[in-house]
Computed example of a mutant assay.
Amino acid sequence: MTPRDASEDPRGNGSRWSDLDRPPLNATALRRGLVHEGALWSQVEVVQRTGSTNSDLVARAAEGTASEGAVLVAEEQTAGRGRLDRQWTAPARSGLFFSVLLRPVEVPVARWGWLPLLTGVAVATGLSRAAGVDTALKWPNDLLVKVGGEERKAGGILAERAGEGGVVVGVGVNVSLRADELPVPTAGSLLLAGAVSTDRDPLLRGVLRALEQWYVRWREAGGDPAACGLQEAYAAGCATLGRMVRAELPGGRSLVGEAVALDGDGRLVLATREGVQEPVGAGDIVHLRAV
């Protein structure tokens, strides 16, 4: 799908201000605040509607039309994807839907698996500061908030390789979704979690600034998660650690145990009932109960 310019209204009535509760992002102000000499972010583009910002940015990277630090933001995604090709849908201008292109050529490829975890730390940090919402991370890539005392998923992260030396990281966060707009009962939003602000401009700036800070630290440390403090920061904000969980693994196998640690490769270490500690590098994690 061809991205539409952010000045166009998705309802086709010629006014991008048709929903005054959800004003459009100010692309000019975002560029002015984020793109400058010495910054990671090289360009910030806001489009009204597209299928998937990740797919678009991966294609641009393959064509050679996007450089490191490119940021593509959509007011609405019609084919947004999460892990395992799950669909991510939300009303126009109700959240933050964006992708960034990173080229960590100084970091060994074996450590690139930390990028979605790094992004999770940055998103949680930026939103906590800008929205005043207590956020937590569910391994490996979900953002959790509390709604009525219950943990709800309010966001997710998806990283994809983009040719040689490139990774596109996509982020989706529900900002102003109301209860009757939630796609599933277990979903949440910053609004429902009691955010002090749902103004998406400062929220996006806060997230991207935190992402830049963490990415630069990680890259300068050669991707070493311990040396740059990333491993400790993720563990401190991870709601999965200390819980009994079920890991739904590739191939249909499942594993139940206590999530006791995050190893140097970003894998979740489970202590099973058999007394074995087993690292999990991929799979769906289901929180069972607190320990």
Rank of each mutant, 00 (worst) to 15 (best):
D9G: 10
W17L: 08
N26Y: 13
A27N: 04
E37W: 10
S42T: 04
S42A: 11
E45G: 09
V47W: 12
T53F: 02
V58M: 10
A61R: 09
A62V: 03
T65G: 03
A66F: 05
A79C: 12
R81P: 12
R81D: 10
L84P: 01
S99W: 11
V105E: 15
V107L: 00
G113P: 15
L118H: 09
T119V: 05
G120V: 02
A124T: 12
R129K: 14
V133H: 01
T135I: 06
L137S: 10
K138Q: 14
V145D: 14
K146Y: 15
E151D: 15
R152T: 09
E164I: 10
G166T: 05
V167M: 00
V168N: 08
V169M: 03
G172D: 08
G172E: 04
V173C: 03
A179H: 13
S197N: 07
T198H: 04
V207M: 02
A210D: 11
A210I: 00
E212T: 14
W218R: 12
R219Y: 09
R219Q: 13
A221Y: 03
A221T: 03
C228Q: 14
A236C: 09
A236G: 09
G252V: 07
G257F: 11
V260A: 07
V260K: 08
L262N: 06
G266D: 15
T272P: 11
E278Q: 14
